[in-house]
């Protein structure tokens, strides 16, 4: 996996896990298993990143909202 995908997975994984955790509300054991599995996967994902980072890669995630803020710049003409 490329570092970018890994980063995305790192952020998305724990944000999606609650859905599964909530679905397993009635069964505590699978629920806790999911939690542990999530954190385990996360650890592995993060650990797999550190080699790339040491070699100079700078993976990062950005939020889509930030991109749209550029629109204002073009329109921001002060009326005389």
């Amino acid at each position: 996996m490329s570092p970018e995908v890994t980063v995305l997975a790192c952020v998305a994984l724990p944000l999606l896990a609650p859905a599964l955790i909530a679905a397993l509300r009635r069964w505590p054991n699978p629920r806790e298993a999911v939690t542990l599995l999530t954190s385990g996967c996360l650890f592995l994902l993060v650990y797999s990143l550190h080699d790339d980072v040491l070699q100079g890669a700078r993976p990062a995630c950005e939020f889509p909202v930030g991109r749209d803020f550029g629109v204002l710049d073009r329109l921001h003409a002060q009326p005389p």
């Binding site: 889509p64 909202v65 991109r67 749209d68 629109v71 204002l72 329109l75 009326p79 005389p80």
Partner: peptide
């Protein structure tokens, strides 16, 4: 809108531009 404000901000800005543009 909180996640993807692109469309609605665009409309709002065009609206404002058309209002102010007429004024100009």
């Amino acid at each position: 809108v909180g996640l993807d404000a692109g469309l609605i901000t665009n409309i709002a800005q065009q609206g404002a531009a058309s209002l102010l543009g007429q004024a100009l």
